[in-house]
Computed example of a mutant assay.
Amino acid sequence: MSSAAPTPVPAGSAGSAVPLIIVDGANVVGSVPDGWWRDRAGAAIRLRDKLAALPAAGLPGIPPPIEVVLVVEGKARDIPQGPPGVRIARATGSGDDEIIDVVRHEHTSGPVPRRIVVITADRGLRDRATALGAEVRGPTAVPR
């Protein structure tokens, strides 16, 4: 578990019908062999900017509007918030633990269950997220 409290959700979003897409930033960035390891923060910023269109565009099988959270860790943790549409969750420890904390928070903070989709290829994270009721899709589900 991460030692920090889960990243708060925007007011009014918990329990809403708006699906939540949680992106495992390190895993998605690492799925494209484009030299990301030379500039982890820059790679996270590029991903953040590509994800910015999703709230209005949706994903296959998930029509808009959607809420997008990009979980960043390590050297990518200090990237700026950036354009509207993607909320940055900064993991103080493990990015996987931060993702699970966000999933747990979303499942317990509203009166109505919310559709939550975690974007990752990490099998351990996949198992943890699905055990909490989240769906999981691989990195190719989002622009990279």
Rank of each mutant, 00 (worst) to 15 (best):
R128W: 15
S109P: 01
I45N: 00
G25E: 03
V86T: 13
I119E: 06
I100C: 15
E135R: 08
D122A: 03
V68D: 04
R104H: 14
P111I: 00
P8C: 10
T108D: 06
A53K: 09
I99R: 10
L125E: 04
V117Q: 11
T108F: 06
Q81H: 09
L125Y: 12
S13N: 03
R126G: 02
D97T: 00
A76D: 07
S2C: 09
I79R: 15
G82D: 09
I88M: 06
D122E: 03
G85S: 15
D127T: 10
S31G: 12
G12T: 01
R77E: 07
G30T: 00
P65I: 04
G82F: 11
G25D: 02
P33Y: 04
W37S: 12
P19G: 11
R137Y: 04
A131N: 07
D78L: 09
L51W: 00
V29K: 02
V32K: 02
T92C: 03
P65Q: 11
T120R: 11
D24H: 10
R126V: 00
V103W: 07
A44M: 06
R38F: 04
I21V: 15
A26T: 01
P83K: 13
D97M: 08
L59T: 01
V142T: 04
V142L: 06
A41L: 08
T130S: 09
A4T: 09
G30Q: 03
D78R: 11
A14Y: 05
W37Q: 10
L70Y: 14
P33T: 01
V29C: 07
P111D: 14
S13W: 14
R104F: 15
R90H: 10
A91L: 04
V32M: 03
S16F: 13
P64N: 07
W37R: 10
P139G: 06
R38D: 12
S3V: 03
E135V: 01
G82C: 09
L125T: 00
V136H: 06
V69A: 08
V68T: 06
G12Q: 01
E73Y: 06
M1L: 13
D97P: 00
R115V: 01
D101K: 14
D101H: 11
R38C: 08
S16V: 04
